[in-house]
Design a binder for these strands. Structure first.
Lengths: 205, 205, 205, 205
DNA sequence: TATGAATGAGAGTTCATTCAT
DNA sequence: CATGAATGAACTCTCATTCAT
């Protein structure tokens, strides 16, 4: 594996654009990065192609994102934030509903979230990701699922909600994986099966 | 002088060793490949490192595995075969037991299988894998799970078993992922939760 | 980490430089390539040596010529263009002269052309050359010779000029080969012989 | 270019086989080498493929031909000898005929010779060929053509025959090249043209 | 002697990153 | 800031040749 030589001035953050023009550039770069990371995965994505898709020069890309890793981080963070906001918004809608109602909504929301942020999974799974930030991101998501679970009626006990949250998140990913599986007949049936399983489980008995 | 070789027959398979020495080499190479692929993933693994870990020259590695991709395929196929054999062996032990009994056994067997074949998941998930062979491998596994399910007492109807098999396999992967998750407190609780969920679901009600 | 790039658009052309610096580089690279291809032939020439002779890094070479084959193509095309221009320029000088006058001029011009473009023959003969472009290049050259022949006085009939053009081109190559033959005594006599043969043949009787 | 490390015991000749079995092997190896050199050229031909085509092991190939170069030399020498024998045989048939009769016979004999020894040209043109032996081979061929020319009626003066021989040999190659040229319409016409040109030239006036 | 395994220098190529204009 | 050129370590793969059985 190619280990980039340590720079003397280590960059740890994407530079923030100072002007209007810059903001548009950054948006275009992130959009291009989303597309390329989603299509090819982190490793096979190249900075050159990302720049090209954003109709920017390679130099320009590096102006805002000093390393490939930082670009991935910035993009992933933005995605995570969007997801957090989504869950936040769901909280009020779901409060007081029975736990099993969560399943349907979460499945459909998650699915459309990933359709709009197709690089999220690839970036979350990439190797070499800083374990600290990975954990942090997860904590946030789990915390939000826990909040949803403990706000149902009847509420899931906090203790159990912690474990359930993890299960729920994994199941969401499974569901998305199945949705995306090429030529799988009976996809619908399988998804129903999973949703049903989760609902039953959430309903307690 | 390397002249691009317009070969009439592009190699599509690992070359089989014909001597004892060769067999030993291939075994060592596969072991090394397992370790490296597991540690770094397909992309970041390098042929050079694999050869070095097997104390073989790079030329020796290529003698038996003409491309990195073919090495991965061969290794993955061997793993899949081992898994198939494992499931085959389980069939007799499990026949006639209630469906929910499957959960415990599958979880533990799968977990130890992956401990011994740590590259299996990484190789199964790599990009650029031939979709045909990917599907074929899956079909085999699913077929075997279906067999297990339809041999329980009472038997799961074939139709439903098809869908369930997919769910079961995904849950196994989830369980393994959780097992391997660094610094996750309450890992045990979460795993119990999943096992419970699956058991309930398999028990029909 | 080199990940095979499944590029949607495989490069089929040399990249054009956009800055003065780049133009100079490309010129140096082509000069170096000319020397190395001429000395060693296509197969034995190495990209590393070409880059080194141009005092460029290997990366720089690949920036403009994405493959060795493309480098050869670009160089050969440039040479062919130069030759075409040369023949074009001869057209006016020769129009109205008798056919046999062509021989002397063509021989000497061709000889000095190859002295200045010493890789032309090696590149034209290399294996794996795209048959389409090979044919195209030939057509152009033949067409120009035909033009010269049909513009003589008396003019060679078009039909016969087509066949003669091919003969003329081959004889030019033979002449050059003989010129370049190491330690051949009586080179001059042999060349005279060929020139004479061609002149007689062109003069019709 | 890959320069093979100097061996301590420099091999300078193909080893002669000692038994019947060995002679068959050598014949098979030479046949395979002929095919591969002809198809791919010297550089792109590989020892491995040659051995495989002869259904011999690579070790066996090296037993008889200690280097690729020596294999090429041996094959080329055998071809040259066959050609010399052919010309020898022609001498009696042609003695006393007019010079222009040579053209037709030489063209057709040469063409069928190359059909049976398709690697001859490729091996004769390869780079790195020992200039001494190259010159020697040529001398022999030229000498034989000279003999044919000086035995015609009326005989070509020795002096001129020397120069003519070279021209004749080159024209033979040109003819063969044209015969082999893919999709050239009017091939026949062109060949007639060349033959005619040579005949006229040989006829003196 | 025949066979197949072993070796490793060297080739083409890639791409993250830096630099000069 | 933008741009495109420059860099070179690292990577996959090849193949003539040698070795061990």
């Amino acid at each position: 594996m190619r280990v980039p030589s340590q720079k003397s001035s280590v960059a740890t953050e994407a530079r923030a654009p100072q002007r209007e023009r810059g903001r548009a550039r950054v948006a275009a770069l992130l959009a291009a990065a989303t597309a390329v990371f989603a299509e090819k995965g982190y490793d096979a994505a190249t900075m050159t192609e990302i720049a090209a898709r954003a109709r920017a020069s390679i130099g320009s890309l590096y102006q805002f994102f000093p390393t490939k890793e930082l670009l991935a981080e910035a993009l992933h963070a933005a995605n995570a934030e969007a997801l957090a906001a989504l869950l936040e918004a769901m909280a009020s809608r779901l409060a007081g509903k029975p736990a099993e109602a969560l399943a349907d909504i979460l499945f459909s929301e998650f699915s459309s979230f990933l359709a709009e942020h197709p690089a999220f999974v690839a970036l979350g799974d990439r190797r070499g990701i800083d374990p600290k930030s990975k954990k942090a991101t997860r904590q946030v998501l789990r915390g939000q699922i826990v909040k949803l679970l403990t706000a149902t009626k009847p509420p899931v006990p906090r203790q159990r909600a912690q474990a359930l949250a993890i299960v729920v998140l994994h199941l969401l990913r499974v569901a998305v994986a199945i949705e995306g599986e090429a030529d799988l007949e009976g996809r619908g049936t399988v998804l129903d099966e999973i949703r049903l399983m989760l609902k039953r489980h959430l309903s307690g008995r």
